[in-house]
Structure formats: structure tokens, C-alpha cells
């Protein structure tokens, strides 16, 4: 993938660039918003990583300018800690995802994967099927190998989020954000608890584990 990083802090920029290059991506960096805009508009990138606080043109304005300029490249916005409404503002400006610094590199990598493969239209199809698992959104039904699996509403949402990202890692934080709409980490491991219940229900009577735990990174359902 070709990735543009717009970040003014040289060390953070180098950290991200190094990690991404090692994972086989092609990385271009820009240290301010104007530079970022110049590179971003050539349209050859798969993902843009934009820091919220960059000189010349700030991150929010940069995303707004790109979106009004018909640039649809997925944007991952980065921000320093704080701001309760930062995430909402970022998404409203046109960013596709939002990540609070400091973050583990695995978190960034997972989100970039999710962004790049994301279909242009986010609307859920009526049903999703992956391997032997079938998810019916309209009737809120789940079947594995044709056998009905009874899930709690939250477990259903959890499985749906994993199935929207076939073969890609979904992190704990991503699940907290998307399944629970939480912007903080509760002390209680609600993700783990719900996942283990979901897993128990899905795997009952099957040998193969439907959900894979990627140690230190997140969870994944196998792709087709």
C-alpha cells in the first residue's frame, strides 16, 4: 500500500514510517498541512494518516479541504490525548477513523488494514456470510453450518463487526468504539468476557474455533 503520513513530530513520524515500511508499505511523509495537501491531492495513496495538530494547515481543515476536493482516500486521524469531542469532530470533518496518541503500533496497523480494504459504501448488506458462518442483519439471526446460534444483542454486534473485517485484525479498542460506542477502557474486560461467550456459543459442536485471538493485537475471523 502507498501511505502518506502528515505529522510534524519527527520522532512519531519516523516511528510510524519505520513500522509501516517494515510491514511492506510504501511511505511518504509530510511535516506540515500544506505539504500534506500537495502530496494527498495527487491521489495515488491508499491511506492518509493525518495528525490533528500540524502547522500551516491543521489536520481538521486539511481533511475538510480534501473531502470538498472530491478526494475519497481513507483518512486515519491522529490526536494527542484528551479532547472528549475530538473524535466526533474528526469524524465530522471527514476522517474515516480516529486514533489517540500514544498508541501501540499494532493498533495503527490494524486500523490501516481495516481502512484500506473498506468498501466505499459502508451500508451493511442484508446478510453476510463468511466460511460456514452466516449473519442475517434483517432478522438478527446467526447460523453456523446451517445450525442456528442464539446470541445476545451485544454478541451479535460483536460478531458483525468481526465479519465486516474478514481476515483482518480487529483490536480491543476498535471493538469498544464500534460495538459499545465507548471512548474509554473500562477496568473490567468486557470485550474478553463477551468474546468468550460469543466463542462458546459459535463453537458449540464444532472443532474449529470461529474466532482467532491474535496475541497482543486483537481478534480475527478467517476470510473466505
Amino acid at each position: 500500500m502507498r501511505i502518506l503520513i502528515v505529522e510534524d513530530d519527527a520522532e512519531t513520524c519516523a516511528f510510524i514510517a519505520r513500522g509501516l515500511t517494515e510491514s511492506g508499505h510504501v511511505v511518504v511523509t509530510a511535516s506540515d498541512g500544506r505539504d500534506g495537501l500537495f502530496h494527498a491531492t495527487d491521489g495515488s495513496f491508499d491511506v492518509l494518516i493525518i495528525d490533528r495538530m500540524v502547522p500551516a494547515i491543521d489536520g481538521l481543515s486539511l481533511v475538510k479541504m480534501l473531502r470538498t476536493g472530491q478526494c475519497a482516500t481513507p483518512v486515519l486521524m491522529l490526536t494527542a490525548m484528551g479532547g472528549i469531542d475530538d473524535r466526533v469532530e474528526g469524524l465530522e470533518a471527514g476522517a474515516d477513523d480516529y486514533l489517540v496518541k500514544p498508541f501501540a503500533f499494532s493498533e495503527l496497523a490494524a486500523r490501516i488494514q481495516a481502512l484500506a480494504r473498506r468498501p466505499v459504501l459502508q451500508a451493511d448488506p442484508a446478510r453476510l456470510s463468511l466460511g460456514d458462518i452466516e449473519l442475517d442483519f434483517a432478522r438478527r439471526l446467526v447460523r453456523r453450518a446451517g445450525r442456528k446460534v442464539l446470541l445476545q444483542p451485544r454478541e451479535f454486534l460483536l460478531l458483525a463487526e468481526l465479519m465486516r473485517n474478514p481476515g483482518r485484525i480487529v483490536t480491543r479498542t476498535m471493538l469498544l468504539e464500534r460495538v459499545w460506542d465507548l471512548d474509554f477502557e473500562p477496568k473490567t474486560n468486557i470485550v474478553e468476557t463477551h468474546l468468550s461467550r460469543l466463542r462458546a456459543k459459535l463453537n458449540a459442536g464444532f472443532d474449529e474455533d470461529a474466532i482467532e485471538t491474535v496475541r497482543g493485537a486483537g481478534y480475527r475471523v478467517r476470510g473466505n
Partner: peptide
């Protein structure tokens, strides 16, 4: 603020 109210309850339940 919905999220803050959730965090309130979450902290108490924690």
C-alpha cells in the same frame, strides 16, 4: 453527554 454518563456507570460497576 451519553458517553460520559456511560463512563460514570461503568466506573461505579467496575
Amino acid at each position: 453527554d451519553r458517553r460520559l454518563l456511560i463512563q460514570l456507570v461503568s466506573n461505579l460497576l467496575d
